[in-house]
Design a protein around this nucleic acid. Structure first.
Lengths: 190, 190, 190, 190
DNA sequence: GATGAATGAGAATTCATTCAT
DNA sequence: AATGAATGAATTCTCATTCAT
């Protein structure tokens, strides 16, 4: 489903690639993007050379991390959307996305700064998520579960904003829940 | 008003300090923290040496920028709080803070990473703002304008979150307004 | 006469710049272009940072070395050309250029590979030398001291070729002299 | 004819070795020595591992390329020398060697830098060529076709020099011809 | 005090060479 | 034997900070 145009990748290479992505995700989200590539390689248990063989630049690694994240989110969102009523689905997906988005902003910014207009491969995953969100939102609005004047841009901004807000409250699940309460209440037709 | 324990500072030195803070604020918020100190000095029209005479480390400059921001916000918040009814004051201050917080997160993160737990001098300004917010919130809740279960941590997280959300919508004031609508509606007792 | 558009350059900075150019000339010609910048800095008695402040890339350093060389040669050629009869001047300049060109090829190739078509600043110095050579050659041919069918490209190729040939014979001045004999004889009308 | 002391080498291995030498010759002469080994392997249609099985270091590959070149030249020189009169043979061989020496300098330099003083295996081929040249030169001098004061070192230096000169004129065969005219004229007794 | 040159510890990236498949 | 993934030392360049002018 995502870029199926490369050779199968030898078993060990695939394993290393995965280890690198895991390590990078972990390290980038907990310690920020500034972390030297060398540390990511160490965290993955491989040499720097291997890292750069798989991802030709640090930026490419960042991008790959984000793509994988977006794909996970997209897949789970699709499941959720299929299982539940529009209203329920909308709010469940909102939570899901927020919970899986930790640290995403910093990534996006870093990529954006790199000039390349939200890199091609990211664009694909991004586009997919946008269309899912468009549908979820429309259905929820049709159902009267969400204010009609809220558009896709506002929804995305809120997702990012709530992501940031809850990150601040990492230590207090109750408080985090109250953030959702507030925003969900605010999204309903008044 | 802040740390009045230094020598008076010669007129030109004071002017340079101000120019540096202005330049740093501008540059950090528009281009991120990664910008080399040399560029900030250039933007301020002084040499790097001067920058480092005033702020012993880049981090100290970051901190000073934030302190000044917080002081501005605190001052205006105090004015607003004095002029208006609790409910109105609360929401007006919320907007005010959000609008003055552009780029703040990145700063905070950078400082946090620097290890020193939210630097001493910042703590002072932070503390002041916290107590203002505590009062504003309590008054608004007493007035029945804000849900009683929302606490200070949630309020702060929402301020940061809405700041992030509106940053995403920099180009569309109407959409930004809708974010405030949603969150303010959600904050009111349901 | 060469790019007089920069600030005067502080005394110590100028000294360092000169030390760097001297060291680079020495190191590049004796040990080749592959030598790490760090070694050149060490040879010049400065830190790498200083090297890169003066020459933003290794390539720029290479270029500066060549420009300085060409300028020296051009200046001496002009003197020689003024002092002597066309025939004598032509052959004296030929020697001069050859003797000052040690290692030049490698430089040119490195720069050429860098893509930028024989960098702008080099072009200027190069152009100057070309026009000098054009005149010297024309005068010598008018005088009947050099075969009329030899053009500027051949002259330049011969200069480079004799440079290479004599480099091979660095240890044997007599043999080097014989190379000049052969080529000078071959250049005269037969 | 060269080092006949290795095992016979399986047919496919021999084919790979040849493909590697061809590719290396091509790539080194057109793009310089700096080209990564991996590209040479790719150009030869084999993996890097194979390259390193046949040539234990990059330097060894360089050496092998040169040896093969020298052997080709030596063989053709022998033919030419047998077919023609001394004078004619001398000048014909001079041309031959020059035309087959493209890029050789860079190789030699690279090998020389590698410390090992003109590697053992090269020495053998080199020695053979030296003795051929010695004979050709002596015969031509005996015939009165070449100045008597020119020795082997000068001849070699001239070969290298003319090689360099004609490389500069790659695009203009006429000019290249004039270089030969000049040098051949200069070599004749005056 | 102000200036900007000098410093050198990192950071990203490359590439010859080794080794598991 | 061949393959190409893995390795990590080496290289170019950056930038916070210091110091001579």
């Amino acid at each position: 489903m995502s870029g199926a145009s490369e050779r199968p990748l030898r078993a060990d290479a695939a394993r290393n690639r995965a280890k690198l992505l895991d390590a990078a995700t972990e390290v980038f989200t907990t310690r920020g993007i500034g972390v030297p590539t060398e540390e990511i390689a160490r965290a993955a248990g491989v040499g720097v050379g291997t890292l750069f063989r798989h991802f030709p630049t640090k930026e490419a690694l960042l991008e790959a991390v984000m793509v994988r994240r977006l794909e996970t989110i997209t897949a789970r969102t699709a499941e959720l959307a299929a299982e539940a009523e529009p209203a329920e689905a909308f709010f469940a997906c909102f939570r899901l996305i927020v919970e899986h988005s930790a640290g995403k902003q910093e990534f996006t910014r870093a990529l954006a700064e790199a000039g390349v207009d939200v890199h091609a491969s990211l664009r694909e995953s991004t586009e997919q998520m946008r269309s899912q969100l468009t549908e979820l939102l429309a259905a929820a609005q049709r159902d009267g579960a969400v204010r009609p004047e809220v558009g896709l841009p506002e929804l995305i901004a809120l997702l990012v904003g709530v992501g940031t807000a809850t990150e601040q409250l990492a230590a207090d699940p109750g408080a985090r829940e109250r953030i959702f309460d507030v925003v969900f209440a605010g999204l309903r037709p008044q």
